[in-house]
Structures are given as C-alpha cells and as structure tokens.
Design a protein around this nucleic acid. Structure first.
Length: 499
RNA sequence: GCUCCCAUCGUCUAGGGGUCUAGGACACCGCCCUCUCACGGCGGAGACAGGGGUUCGAAUCCCCUUGGGAGUACCA
C-alpha cells in the first residue's frame, strides 16, 4: 500500500437528514480524495444511542448517492478498515480506553451529573472556568470499590496535560495555538459504555489511517483535545483542514428554521445533483475571478484546499435556483425527460407505463418549458393544463384579458379558423393569428392573450403556437368555447349586480 | 465569562504592497429582443467595518476597537 495515499473521511451522525452543511463537508472531502487519487471513507458516527436512527442513516446514504458522492469504503461497500459504523466498533474503543487506563493517561470517574453541575457552579462563582476539577484522578482502589458498591457507573476520563500549549497546524487557517490550561479531563467513555465523540473520532481516524481531517470549523476548538489523545496513544497526527460554517440569511448558523436545508428536500423540489454540487462547492471555495460554473469532473480537477476561504458563507437560495436553471437548460431533451418523468408521474399527469405517443407529448411540453423553469417542481403549475382537463382560471388574468372589450369577438372569429386549419402545427397556426390581427387592426398580443388565458387559465405560458400544438385542436377549441361561456356569465353577473 | 476563528458590493467571492478610479457571479434597476413569461444581449447602481501604526506607497502587513461565528456536555 502506498503510505502517502490520501485517505479522507466524512463522518456524519445519523440523527437527522443530511444537511447542506454536512453535504458541503462531504463534497470537499470527496473532491480532495478524487483530486489526489485518494480514498474517500464514509463512517457513521452512531454512538448517541438516544438520537441515532436507522432511517437517518438511510436518508444520509441516499442523499450522498443523489449528489453522486460515491465513497470507496463504508456502509454497503465495506473496506479494509471496518466496521464503518461506530456502534460496531465498541470493542475497539474499549481496548483503547484500557490502554490509556493502563498507561495512566485515563482514570475512572464516579461523579454524578449533579456533582459535576455543582463543580461547575462553584468554579464559576469563584471566577474560574467551568472545568472538571479532576477530583477522581487519584481515587484509591477502596474508594473506587465503595462507589461501585453504591451502584455508581463510572465514566472514563482522559488525564489531560495542562502544561504548555498545543499547536493545530491547519491547512486552511494556518497555525493556531491553544493553551493547555484551557483543557480539562474530558470524558472518553460514557457510563453506558459508549465512547464520546472526541475519543471515538481519534481512535477511528487513526485506525482507519485517515491522513487529512477535513471538517467544519465548529470542530477547531476540539482539535487540541484530539491531538493530546493522538499523542497519548502514540498515533500519527493527521493534517487538519477546518472549513468555514454555512450560515442562514440572518448570519446565524444554518438550521431548519431557515427553511429547506436537508439535501433530500432539495432533491424532492427538483434541484439537479450537478447544480447542487456546483453551488455547494462555491460555498467556501472559488477558483478564480470569473468562473462560477463547474462540472463535477472540473471540480475534481481544480479543487484545492488552498483556495478554500476562511469566512463563513451565507446560503443564498436565489443563486442556487439560478444555477439549477442553468443546468436544466443544459440538459438534452432525453436527459430532461428522464429527470422530469418521475415528477410527472408523482403528480398523476403521466401513468407508470408511458406510451410512445405520450412520451413525445411530454417531451414537447418539456422542450417549450425548459428555459422557463428553475426547479423541476415548477413543472407542475407550468404544465398541468396539458395533462388535466380542469382549468384553474387566474382571476387577475381573466380580468385583465377576457373581461376586456373585444376579447369575445376575437375568440369568436378565431374559432372557425382553428377548426378549419389543415394541420395543427406551429407553421399552420401562426398565419391564422396574423390574419386575425390584421382583421381586428390591433397588436398581435391583443389576439393572442385571450386565447392564452382561455387555453391555460393564465396570461403566462410558452409561445402560444407551441401551446396549441401540444394541446391539439379539440382541446383548444373546447377551451375557447368554455372561455366564451365564462365571459358571458361574468358579464351577465356584473350586469345584474349593476342592475 | 473564558478560549479560538473570521471581517471586500445585499449574497458568494477575485484580490496575497504599487497594474484597484477594487474584477466576476446571483439578486436588484433600466433598455433591447418579443404574443405573455422566460431565455439571451446591453447598460446601471452597489463594498475594502472603524482607528492607529509599518512603508515612498496599503483592500493587501502589524496592533487595538467593533461586529459576527464557534467551542467550553456522559451531543456529534
């Protein structure tokens, strides 16, 4: 094995869905691994029994797959450094805790939560930092036995070194030093036997031969503790790279209350994986002063930690939407169809089995809508009138167009022409409208808009000839008749109100 | 409270002593294209947090202030 091979990992805890912040961390790890022909490990940190769920694990795996962040080792994949679920590595943590216990770098602590609380309060009231005072450091065998007899379950604490300072040589932030007197004897193994994060992460990263730990900046403050652990074990310390946080529009750490933040939600709303990846990459990373659009392969080629910025980034939905629109427009019709079909099916516009005729109709619809949507879910409102008979008239559009004087005449004059048109295509349709325009001596819009509202229910749609061609002669004529009827009713209604 | 990180247009950022009257992208505004909406094209407005230094010269280096963020758990 190549000892210089880059090995990075993404280590989410399955306590919820994959968050965009986590996804960005996963992406940076993935890009770094691929850029260096390294190994990308996925490890599930499920040591919090109370909050970890299998459903969350599945959701995270699915989100990773959706984004195309395929891992080389981990769940469903295996690998030479497993298991990749922390809950299956308990014996490893136990063994390593014992090593520290044997070497005198760890000890059992029998303090209860109440006592710990008291210790903290006392410290604060005396103007000291709220740290554990190490009172269990030198318990005698007899004292320990006494606690055990009382039924107290101990935790294992690390015997921290309070002298000197610890240097974190961060690939993004440079050299950061921490005074060791800030540390306290933190817990390694909880009373239920599970390892704490700071302990498990060190054991796992060391055993899994992780060379570069790329993670959120929120972990920077934990790093000195972890470095002390690496040193206590005699493990090689990996390189660290702490990437900036992602914030909401209010500059607070991005969370659910800022709206959609789970990757799965974005997928459901119809954001393309490539757009998502591109946008996420730009949150804290840039290439030069002009390029913003990057294909995945290009990101792999160009990604470096040196170009990762230090400042936190605000998640900007409008920019993601714009970018998604760009990617949608770049799709071939076939690709667009493959992406959109599940959405149409979920809305009941299209059955599971798609006939060739229907497929070509859907593709026609997609072709005329492609440059008009930014997110796939917009397709629902934008295209329902092609698939459903029941029209929802937009009141404003009706008022603005159908209620206008002349609308009835125009629709009346168009009807026979449309019925008589040889072929129902763009080429044959256009002259009909041009002719009507001349007859009525008005702008083209004046003849088109009433038809648009009659046929779609709104005054916004793709080009009218396209719309009519997709809809077909029978439906357009029927809808024009319906609209005429609607106008009649409205005029009758308003007349009676006036009278 | 203590510790650590960060600070360029509203947002993401380029910039790493002179080429900066600070560049790009999104958003915003205007115009063009046009059957509506989009797309596209053109143009506009918009930033170096403040104060001290260092230097011939500072957005770029140092210090302080201010502001924001994170950590300080038997959560990860």
């Amino acid at each position: 094995m190549n000892m210089n091979q880059v090995r990075v990992r993404f280590a989410p805890s399955p306590t919820g869905y994959l968050h965009v912040g986590g996804a960005r961390t996963a992406l940076f790890n993935y890009l770094y691994a691929r850029h260096h022909q390294g190994v990308f490990v996925l490890r599930i940190e499920d040591t919090d029994l109370a909050r970890s769920t299998d459903a969350s694990t599945q959701a995270i795996l699915e989100a990773m797959k959706y984004l195309g962040l395929d891992w080389d080792e981990g769940p469903e994949k295996g690998g030479g450094y497993g298991p990749y679920f922390q809950s299956e590595r308990l014996d490893l943590y136990r063994r390593h805790a014992d090593k520290l216990l044997d070497s005198g770098r760890a000890y059992y602590c029998f303090c209860t939560p109440e006592e710990l609380d008291q210790i903290r309060q006392d410290a604060v009231s005396k103007g000291r930092d709220p740290k554990y005072d190490g009172r269990c450091r030198n318990l005698t065998e007899a004292q320990q036995q006494q606690f055990i007899n009382q039924g107290r379950k101990p935790v294992v604490r690390f015997k921290a070194d309070y002298h000197g300072s610890t240097l974190v040589d961060d690939l993004i932030r440079g050299k950061v030093t921490f005074d060791n007197n800030q540390l306290d004897d933190f817990v390694l193994v909880k009373s239920d036997g599970m390892p704490t994060y700071n302990f498990a992460v060190v054991v796992d990263d060391a055993l899994m031969r992780i060379t570069h730990v790329i993670r959120g900046e929120d972990h920077l403050s934990n790093t000195p503790k972890q470095i002390q652990l690496y040193e206590a074990f005699g493990f090689a310390v990996p390189r660290f790279a702490h990437i900036p946080m992602i914030l909401g529009p209010d500059r607070a750490r991005l969370s659910k209350r800022h709206g959609a933040t789970s990757v799965g939600q974005f997928q459901e709303e119809g954001y393309l994986a490539d757009a998502m990846v591109n946008y996420l990459a730009l949150l804290g990373w840039s290439y030069d002063d002009s390029q913003t659009l990057f294909r995945k392969a290009e990101l792999v080629e160009k990604f470096t930690l040196a170009k990762v910025s230090k400042n936190p980034a605000v998640f900007d939905l409008p920019k993601l939407q714009w970018m998604n629109g760009v990617y949608i427009r770049e799709l071939s019709l076939e690709q667009f169809y493959q992406q959109a079909l599940p959405f149409f099916q979920s809305w009941g516009f299209v059955p599971q089995e798609v006939s060739p005729e229907l497929e070509s109709k859907v593709k026609h619809v997609l072709r005329i809508l492609q440059e008009r949507i930014k997110v796939l879910s917009e397709l629902k409102e934008a295209s329902y009138y092609f698939f459903q008979d029941q029209l929802h008239y937009d009141e404003k559009a009706v008022q603005k167009v159908l209620d206008k004087e002349g609308a009835v005449e125009i629709l009346h004059s168009l009807l026979p022409e449309l019925l008589a048109a040889k072929d129902y295509t763009q080429e044959k349709l256009e002259p009909i409208f041009r002719k009507a325009q001349e007859q009525h001596q008005c702008k083209l819009a004046t003849v088109i808009q009433p038809v648009r509202v009659a046929v779609t229910g709104t005054n916004v749609s793709p080009g009218i000839y396209d719309v009519l061609a997709v809809l077909g002669r029978a439906k357009t004529c029927q809808r024009i008749k319906d609209a005429l009827e609607l106008i009649k009713q409205r005029q009758g209604g308003s007349a009676s109100v006036q009278g």
